[in-house]
Amino acid sequence: MSKETSTWLNTHVLIGFTDKRGHAWHYRADHQGTEPNHYPGPIPITEVKRRLFGWSAEPARVFVEDRFGLRLAEHHLGVTTSDTGDLLAIHTDEYGIHQYSTWLLDNVAALLDDGLAIGSAGLLRERKQAWVSVEIPDNITTPEGVQFRPNLLACSSHDASLKTRYKRVVTNVVCDNTMNLSLREDGQEVAIVHKRNSALHLLSAREALQIVHTVADDFAAEVKKLCQTTVTDRAWKAFLDAHTPIPTEPGRGRTNAANKRAALTRLWTSDSRVSPWKNTGWGVVQAVNTHLNHEALIRGAGRAERNMTRVMTGELAKHDRTAAATLHKVLATV
């Protein structure tokens, strides 16, 4: 992680409930700036508005300049920041701006019950993306020893890289990883396209998401099922062959595959974030998720930024589901 990326993460990302979860893994004390970005309890909504959302995205006219001079680009819309004038994106005039403060704070407050508070919030990609995570105050520990925090994650963008989404996820406390709520794809999020006059229908969104209080039981049931799934050493090797096959031809691909298999096996056998659940289905999912979050090769972005982007786009959830589906296929044949 470059110092610039670390400084951004430690000033433009706010982490709450550190008395329950500890510091975020990207925490660097010397990159905190004048105000710490970690809070022992919930993050006050006033802090999120002041430190992250104290500006707005403003529409701007777009011009083109060529040998015919300077002309207005009709049917196009620029998006700029109200405080610095930075250009965030250029869209067609059908694009609808979703202000972070409205869509990630006000709408979420209307969706949720009392007893929930902001657990994390942040800006990424030079403020082109943002998220707010709402959580219950206490960690939950399953009988199998898996400690987690249920979340409702709200995220959006100004560069069309993300729809505005409200989704149920969990934070796995032992590794500070975000994980998909379940291996199902249905009913886990509500997405709104950035179009003029787009709106969130609160009642239908609430019914679809079933809100954060239902996350604990659903996730705990998934953990129990996976922990009761036995994965022998032979099945683990078969899983590696299916999940990360080694190419027959020598080269970078073969080397990368061998390195990934070695890293997954080390997590499986001797890493405290995974090894307590060795020889179970949960151990398999945990090994794959932890490797992707903390050890997989990253190109073109910092690890923390890439991890959060994967969560917001749903890519991480697909990885979890794919790993579990591969495991079930392997167990049916071994």
Results as ranks from 00 to 15, higher is better:
Thr5His: 13
Thr7Ala: 13
Thr7Asn: 10
Leu9Ala: 04
Leu9Gln: 10
Val13Asp: 07
Phe17Asn: 08
Thr18Cys: 07
Thr18Lys: 00
Ala24Thr: 05
His26Glu: 13
Ala29Ser: 10
Ala29Phe: 12
Asp30Trp: 09
Glu35Ile: 05
His38Cys: 11
Tyr39Ile: 08
Gly41Glu: 13
Pro42Arg: 04
Ile43Lys: 03
Leu52Asn: 07
Leu52Arg: 02
Phe53Thr: 00
Trp55Leu: 12
Trp55Glu: 14
Ser56Gln: 13
Ala57Leu: 11
Phe63Ser: 06
Asp66Gly: 13
Gly69Met: 05
His75Ala: 14
Leu77Pro: 11
Val79Gln: 01
Thr80Leu: 12
Ser82Asn: 07
Ala89Leu: 04
Ile90Met: 14
Tyr100Phe: 14
Ser101Asn: 08
Leu105Asp: 04
Val108Lys: 00
Ala109Asp: 10
Leu111Asn: 01
Glu135Phe: 00
Ile136Val: 13
Ile136Gly: 09
Pro137Cys: 03
Asn139Pro: 10
Thr141Val: 13
Thr142Asp: 10
Asn151Pro: 02
Ser157Glu: 06
His158Phe: 15
Leu162Met: 10
Lys163Gly: 01
Thr178Asp: 10
Leu181Pro: 04
Leu183Lys: 01
Arg184Leu: 11
Gly187Cys: 03
Glu189Ser: 15
Ile192Asp: 00
Val193Gly: 03
Lys195Phe: 09
Leu202Gly: 05
Leu203Trp: 12
Ser204Ile: 02
Ala205Arg: 02
Ala205Met: 03
Glu207Leu: 13
Gln210Phe: 05
Ile211Pro: 00
Val212Cys: 11
Asp217Gln: 10
Asp217Lys: 07
Asp217Gly: 09
Asp218Leu: 11
Ala220Met: 06
Ala221Leu: 05
Glu222Arg: 03
Cys227Gly: 09
Cys227Glu: 07
Thr232Ser: 15
Trp236Ser: 00
Ala238Met: 05
Thr244Cys: 15
Glu249Ala: 11
Pro250Trp: 02
Gly251Trp: 09
Gly253Met: 09
Arg254Gln: 15
Thr255Asn: 12
Thr255Arg: 12
Ala257Asp: 06
Ala262Asp: 11
Ala263Tyr: 06
Leu264Asn: 04
Thr265Trp: 06
Arg266Tyr: 10
Leu267Phe: 11
Leu267Pro: 10
Trp268His: 05
Thr269Trp: 01
Arg273Tyr: 04
Val274His: 10
Trp277Lys: 04
Gly281Asn: 01
Gly281Asp: 09
Val284Arg: 00
Gln286Asp: 11
Gln286Ile: 02
Gln286Ser: 14
Thr290Tyr: 15
His291Asn: 06
Glu295Pro: 05
Glu295Gln: 13
Leu297Asp: 12
Ala304Tyr: 14
Ala304Gly: 09
Asn307Asp: 15
Thr309Pro: 02
Val311His: 12
Thr313His: 09
Ala317Gly: 15
Asp320Asn: 15
Thr322Tyr: 07
Val330Lys: 01
Leu331Met: 08
Leu331Tyr: 09
